[in-house]
Amino acid sequence: MTAANNQASRYDPAFANELYSIENGHYIKQCMQCGLCVVTCPARHLMDLQPRKYFKAIQAGDRDRVLKANTPWLCTSCNLCTVRCPRGIPIIDVMHGMKLYLAQKQGVKSAPGALFSKTFFDVMLKRGRQWEAWLTQMYFLKAGPSAIKDALKMMDVAQPMVLKRRLPLAPAKTIKGKSQLKKIYEKAAALAKEGH
């Protein structure tokens, strides 16, 4: 790849436009690069690209860097950047959109956050409510062998939880309107797809 080509991919408007068209993606255009989100973000020290640069990379259409960045997966939805953003960008909503985009593009196993979110959703849709103990088990099962090690590291936290009956292993109630919920979801997902 020549240097010029490399540069071209760094400023690829087609890629920028693709991301502008995802849910809430259009907000990224109005970032004026003040950098307030960066100092605001509690997870910034773990990010490959801190939020401002992440948005700048999207505006530039820098495909490689955007696709590789762990930025959205570190977002905790604490909302602080969103309430502070001087340009009114709902940053956590943008991050939701990016996470959905990345999961669709790269598969739910490409990032732990993608898998966890998907598992959470699956449990919820199936039962109408969350069942935290089940969610945890499902997640580690789906994540595969390497995750088991992580799970074991968590045992010191999980054990007292179980002891204190805060992770009931018996399934919680499911709701009556499960199919109603599913219909609502499906319709909403279809509408959202039409919307952009």
């Binding site: 400023y11 408007p13 920028a16 502008y20 255009k29 109005q30 004026m32 505006q59 530039a60």
Partner: peptide, 14 residues
């Protein structure tokens, strides 16, 4: 106006 022009997708390079 600056914001409106950003919304057209113009890229600003400092």
């Amino acid at each position: 106006f600056y914001k409106a022009v950003q919304q057209t997708g113009a890229v600003f390079i400092k």
